[in-house]
């Protein structure tokens, strides 16, 4: 039980996907201008991440490892993630229109979000079991959301700040991310890894 808790906290705070592992930086900088869209993107990523974590885990354990095909990992994982995203989009549009309206516009962006593939690769590397994988994926997804929400909150305030012209946009966003990352480094050592 405690192992699962540590995996969760580790993915959420200590090794935050965005701020410590540098996975999913593109949406982190691109979709963090408004709080509302940040939450939507975060939820969409968490959802797809958990789903793709499960699917790639099954593939790793029942196809790649038994047949010694580990070298096809990258190819297979990215294809699975790309088709999964398409499928989720179709499914949501038909079956859960409410959710589709909230998350739909973020889904096409998710295929090239390296956090999704990164999670699948990390899970395979660490040889997690299925429950650990789910916990890890949920923690990582919520950690991504948390980073995005913090960033969006700060950026909304920053709109009216007198920022040097050259640093406007990406420059100040990166420096802000650095300061948040310093705050998050305070979580290091919170759980035994």
């Amino acid at each position: 039980m405690s192992t699962l808790f540590f995996i969760f906290i580790g993915a959420l705070l200590v090794n935050n996907f965005v701020l410590v592992r540098f996975l999913g930086i593109c949406p982190f900088l691109g979709v963090s201008r408004q709080l509302e869209t940040a939450v939507g993107m975060g939820m969409a990523v968490t959802f797809v991440m958990t789903l793709s974590g499960i699917v790639t885990w099954v593939l790793q354990h029942y196809v790649l490892s038994p047949f010694g095909l580990a070298f096809l990992q990258t190819l297979l994982f990215i294809l699975v993630i790309a088709s999964l995203v398409q499928f989720v989009e179709l499914f949501l549009r038909k079956m859960v229109p409410v959710l589709y309206r909230a998350l739909g516009i973020f889904l096409p962006l998710i295929t090239t979000n390296c956090a999704i593939l990164g999670l699948a690769l990390l899970v395979a590397q660490r040889e997690y079991d299925l429950i650990q994988t789910v916990i890890f994926a949920v923690g990582a997804g919520l950690g991504f959301t948390l980073a995005l929400v913090i960033m969006a909150g700060i950026r909304e305030e920053m709109q009216f700040a007198p920022i040097p012209e050259s640093l406007q946009g990406a420059g100040i966003a990166l420096i802000t991310a650095g300061l948040i990352s310093i705050a998050f480094s305070g979580f290091a050592g919170l759980v035994p890894m």
């Binding site: 420059g171 420096i175 990352s181 480094s185």
Partner: peptide, 19 residues
């Protein structure tokens, strides 16, 4: 060389290139 340094130095480099 820690994660925060990556963000901060890239932020300033991007600013310098803009300038």
């Amino acid at each position: 060389v820690l994660p925060p340094g990556a963000f901060i130095s890239l932020g300033f480099v991007v600013g310098a290139v803009n300038l």
